[in-house]
């Protein structure tokens, strides 16, 4: 359908954008528009005003810092997929970007937009959670930061307050090796289930582990029990099978037209086993 009527503003500075968002409580920031505009076409959303962030150059910039990288909210998926810094520092993100939508959507869709939208089947919220990213928010009462673990609260639900803008994410460099696995119905679709697995192996045994599941529940879930189990163990097929089983245990999975809760949990176990097997065999 055609979009419902709305007023439009295209500010060139962050301060102007924040002011506009605070002037009208029914205004929404427009990033790449690859999720919000379809929702408007489908009448799931009908904001009175769109504040286009496309002309705020500062939001597009990414910077490499000594121990981390700050990725601009308005960097497109295509820019990030072509970024040497991201490929070098965050191979997990580079792998996950292959699964994000299609080329034409990646050219407009943004990193920050995907995170602020927080669709349970989107890849960037999982990546940012797995890598312990810190979300940078700016609003009328000033700047604040939030760890990813407190930011994602549910399907389409985040800790962003009305009138605030996500300006970027600071992601610390990780010394773990990472693998990403996803299942979706067609290439480019949102994930039915996906996993991000990171491990460090020292003297043949696992010294650090981070296991995250996405698409299963309404927000990224960390498999703490399975992580603890892996520490001090060699990544043998039996250990991997046990950890993969543990990672999905106890999760309240969602059920929708694409997959039942049981199927999602079964996929989570399988994908986690594949990801850990990749890491154990080095076949990334």
């Amino acid at each position: 359908m055609k979009f419902p009527a709305f007023s439009y503003a295209c500010p060139t500075s962050l301060a102007e954008a924040i002011e506009l968002l605070n002037d009208d409580e029914d205004s929404r920031p427009l990033a790449g528009g690859q999720s919000l505009l379809p929702m408007m076409a489908l009448r799931v959303a009908a904001p009175r005003m769109l504040v286009d962030l496309g002309n705020i150059e500062a939001l597009r910039q990414s910077v490499v810092l000594p121990d981390s990288m700050r990725i601009g909210a308005m960097a497109t998926h295509a820019m990030n997929a072509a970024s040497f810094d991201i490929w070098m520092h965050f191979p997990l993100m580079a792998q996950a970007l292959h699964h994000v939508a299609h080329q034409a959507v990646r050219n407009r869709g943004t990193f920050g937009g995907s995170i602020a939208h927080a669709d349970a089947g989107a890849e960037m919220p999982l990546v940012v959670s797995a890598l312990d990213g810190v979300l940078l928010l700016d609003g009328q009462s000033g700047q604040r930061t939030l760890p990813a673990s407190e930011f994602f609260q549910g399907h389409y639900t985040t800790a962003i307050e009305p009138g605030e803008i996500l300006t970027g994410v600071e992601i610390p460099f990780s010394d773990m090796d990472w693998a990403f696995e996803e299942l979706s119905r067609r290439p480019g679709d949102l994930a039915i289930a996906m996993v991000a697995a990171g491990v460090s192996v020292e003297d043949g045994v696992c010294s650090q582990a981070r296991l995250m599941l996405g698409g299963i529940s309404d927000h990224p879930i960390r498999a703490v029990e399975a992580e603890t189990y892996l520490i001090g163990r060699e990544l043998t097929p039996n250990v991997i099978r046990a950890a993969a089983g543990m990672s999905a245990a106890g999760i309240h999975a969602r059920s929708d037209t694409h997959a039942s809760a049981d199927f999602r949990l079964s996929l989570a176990t399988t994908l986690m086993r594949r990801a850990l097997t990749q890491l154990a065999t080095g076949a990334i």
Binding site: F3, Y8, C10, Q34, L37, D52, A104, N107, R108
Partner: peptide, 11 residues
């Protein structure tokens, strides 16, 4: 390449 249905004319 972009989807012209997911861009506004004003953009």
């Amino acid at each position: 390449p972009v989807r012209s249905c997911l861009m506004l004319g004003v953009q």
